[in-house]
Design a protein around this nucleic acid. Structure first.
Length: 276
DNA sequence: AAGGGTTTCAACCGCCTCTCA
DNA sequence: GTGAGAGGCGGTTGAAACCCT
């Protein structure tokens, strides 16, 4: 059964007039915001509630910052987008005075192309599928190396714990975070979830992003060319492994932090449920 | 100056989640 | 537990502004 349309017939559409703006501002000054449908009615605006809400939040609010996006803001948008994807509302919360709509528009008109161009220029050599008749390409040797694992504890995050990656862990991919990335994550309030960049494989640079509970520890990721198995440990010690297909492949940690968002959320019932 | 193409961004659309009766 | 209303969100649209020839 379909829902009744939000906007009844006979309401104004399109650009707001100065007079309409003033009516809305005056009404909200007196009565406060919220109950948008009744705002439209009580203020005498021939607009639907959603339209009033949008106009207020994206344009009329007194704390809206006008003017060009600064270089710092742009940098933050890029970093947040690489971490969160198109979650504009979440990104906007980290940029005081900027609206999700503004950031979305700015991304689509200015940054999407930049981002695309940047990726296109990056040399990526990956043995995804081996050409017929050609011998298989060897996996890179993983040298003993220090990585930071991420304890996704309740905010603030616990500082990264040092883990020694040995040659015995060949084919395993830990979750590396450089200081910048870790500090960046520390500043973000993700609610119940935190997005964690996954993976860095010398030469292969296989990367992705996933959401885990703050109370979970990411143990490691076992990977091959097309699949990864994520190993997570919950507070009560339960170890859960998830298969992740089609991992985003990008070359550097700072650029790559990418999607697979909601991946674990799909599994949440399963590992919240009985016996776990 | 005019006309056509491109870009920008405010506003809309439809879906989803949350809340409450 | 269920359904309806309200708010929130990301994707899309289209009018206005801008640019180029």
């Amino acid at each position: 059964m379909g829902r009744s349309p939000c906007c009844a017939k006979g309401v104004n559409r399109g650009a707001w007039s100065l007079q309409e703006d003033q009516i809305l501002i005056n009404f909200i000054k007196t009565h406060g915001q919220g109950r948008w449908r009744s705002v439209a009615q009580k203020a005498g605006l021939k607009r639907c509630g959603k339209s009033c809400r949008l106009r207020w939040l994206n344009y009329l609010r007194p704390d809206i910052k006008r003017g060009e996006i600064s270089a710092d803001e742009e940098d933050l948008i890029i970093r947040l987008h690489s971490l969160l994807g198109n979650r504009w509302a979440l990104i906007a919360k980290r940029l005081p005075g900027r609206t999700d709509n503004e950031i979305k528009n700015y991304w689509n008109t200015n940054l999407a192309k930049k981002s695309h161009d940047k990726k296109a220029k990056l040399p990526i050599k990956l043995p995804q599928t081996k050409p017929e008749g050609e011998k298989s390409i060897e996996k890179p040797e993983v040298k003993a190396q220090t990585y930071n694992s991420v304890k996704c504890s309740k905010a603030p995050l616990i500082p990264p714990q040092e883990i020694q990656l040995t040659s015995a862990l060949q084919n395993e991919i830990l979750v590396p975070l450089d200081d910048d990335s870790f500090n960046f994550l520390m500043e973000i309030d993700f609610g119940d979830l935190v997005s964690v960049p996954v993976v860095d494989f010398p030469d292969h640079a296989r990367c992705g992003q996933m959401n885990v509970r703050k109370s979970d520890t990411v143990n490691h990721v076992k990977g091959d060319d097309d699949n990864c198995i994520l190993s997570l440990q919950s507070e009560d010690g339960f170890v859960h492994e998830n298969e992740m297909k089609g991992v985003q492949i990008q070359p550097s940690l700072d650029l790559e932090l990418k999607r697979v968002a909601s991946f674990l959320e799909l599994e949440e019932d399963e590992w919240n449920g009985d016996g776990h």
